[in-house]
Design a protein around this nucleic acid. Structure first.
Lengths: 279, 279
DNA sequence: AGTGCATTTTCACTCAGTGAAAAGTACGAT
DNA sequence: ATCGTACTTTTCACTGAGTGAAAATGCACT
């Protein structure tokens, strides 16, 4: 490859980025607000020469990662979606958790959320909402802050200490939105969450709501996702919800192959592959 | 790059495949049955030198397209899932169609399917199924043949003639499974489907069922997806379902911005972006 | 200690990828 | 019609990013 940023102009900030990463960075330019992009936008956003962007976009399109609209703009393709649906932490947990989410929704008739941690944020894997429920700020596939949401706090509380430190060390950068919590308080908060096996967060912003979240464990015993319900503040005493959410989360954990507590006294024959071959 | 297939051994069949495509072909090795692959499997399946596969897999992992398990195997990452959730023809239609699918499900209590065409097959975008309903063969994110399924026939019937010809010209290759239909009969069948605005397929294989599918149109007026219900053969006269499915499909089409028939006499102010910013 | 298999590092070679520039295309304004 | 602007696509000579064989390392059985 030519001097990506060596000799000529280009941005010295991104000199020798591998081709693969550059191609992926094109995909990363698509967001909720920007679902369709034309070539020059893509090139500009990804900081690539138009000719380079064109070549890559063509390869991506040819393969199906992108699709070209009639107006010349590009959108994320079904082929990519198809493969992404094999993501264990994406559609994977969703598939298994869905029936339980539905039960929880059936019983409460409030928002039910399922999220996993991805880097310094939580990603919303699925959401069930009645059309008449209160508004929620997040969409499926979108990201939510770790420290200020119930699911986020649960995921954070059960994260390996080293990663946790890394996150707590962060200044206020990123999503330091409304309810920014000082690292000190957060540390204490996370301890409480772990203690209680659930997080309860009161919110006033989009509307008056209370979220209750609990951890979901995988076969390995570590927390792989978080389950949450969001109820209008006026509704039931929020804390009454804690056992319900925890129980549902435990049920999902069991479906994922988690063997209850670490008291490995006896074991079932083996939950085996559990191919979730249906859905 | 070195002579991918020029001088030395290697497979002469895939000589100068672009890097991007090769990287993507690694992703393409993941399937329903093979959700976790180790490096050598990936290298073998994608026909790459181990060293090359390693380098690429590292880039993919670094970026989040893949995730490395503790046992060293790789799985599709959440980051990819996240971006794929922006696919208009994937999660996009799903988001908009979901409420209507739910209504249809509520009323019938049978399987409800949503699918789009991708190349020579249909991809199942979403499925609602009661736990007690009859079995279905396909999973969300999976592929189904065009010519032998109700959704497939609908998608095929409304495909641009040139693509249609290309598909009909095919020998028996691909999914030529149980109910292989001769090209001639299929042509007539598709005409009927277009005439009726729906496809009805009777099936005996996994179980005795009847599928009824209808086309969903996008803002441009062309068919972008197909809606279907699958009922046990014993149930209601299948043909009674046709109006129901067609009506649901029309409702979804409207939500997608389709302006009814092509009688472009008057127009609404503009359905605008319809950001489906919720979900 | 020894065998077999997977992962990772090394290294010299070279061709796939690069980007500036120019040509082609589409659309609007004047 | 004629010019202007912005986007897309082609061309081309250059070169360093990517390549893969081979060797080293690591790991799990035996």
């Amino acid at each position: 490859m030519a001097g990506a940023g060596s000799a000529a102009g280009s941005v010295p900030g991104v000199p020798g980025q591998p081709v693969v990463v550059r191609a992926l960075s094109l995909l990363a330019q698509f967001t909720e607000q920007r679902r369709a992009l034309n070539l020059s936008e893509l090139a500009r956003l990804a900081d690539l020469a138009p000719a380079t962007a064109l070549r890559m976009v063509r390869h991506l399109t040819e393969w199906g990662a992108l699709e070209k609209l009639e107006d010349g703009r590009y959108v994320v393709g079904v082929r990519l979606w198809e493969i992404a649906s094999l993501s264990p932490r994406g559609h994977g947990v969703r598939q298994i958790a869905l029936p339980y989410l539905e039960d929880l929704y059936e019983v409460t008739r409030h928002h039910v959320l399922l999220a996993v941690r991805e880097g310094h944020e939580a990603v919303l894997i699925d959401r069930l909402s009645s059309r008449t429920a209160t508004e929620v700020a997040y969409r499926v596939g979108g990201r939510m802050p770790l420290s200020t949401t119930a699911v986020g706090q649960v995921l954070l509380a059960y994260t390996a200490p080293d990663v946790q430190e890394e996150l707590l060390a962060q200044p206020d950068g990123e999503g330091g939105g409304p309810g920014r919590v000082p690292a000190k308080d957060l540390r204490a908060l996370l301890a409480e969450v772990k203690q209680a096996g659930a997080a309860v967060v009161r919110r006033t912003h989009p509307s008056q709501t209370v979220s209750v979240a609990a951890p979901i464990r995988g076969a390995g015993g570590d927390v792989v996702a978080a389950l949450s319900i969001v109820v209008p503040d006026a509704a039931t005493q929020a804390h009454e919800m804690v056992p319900l959410v925890r129980a549902s989360a435990l049920a999902i954990s069991r479906s994922l192959g988690h063997q209850g507590k670490a008291s490995g006294a006896w074991r079932h024959p083996a939950p085996a592959a559990r191919g979730n071959s249906s859905a």
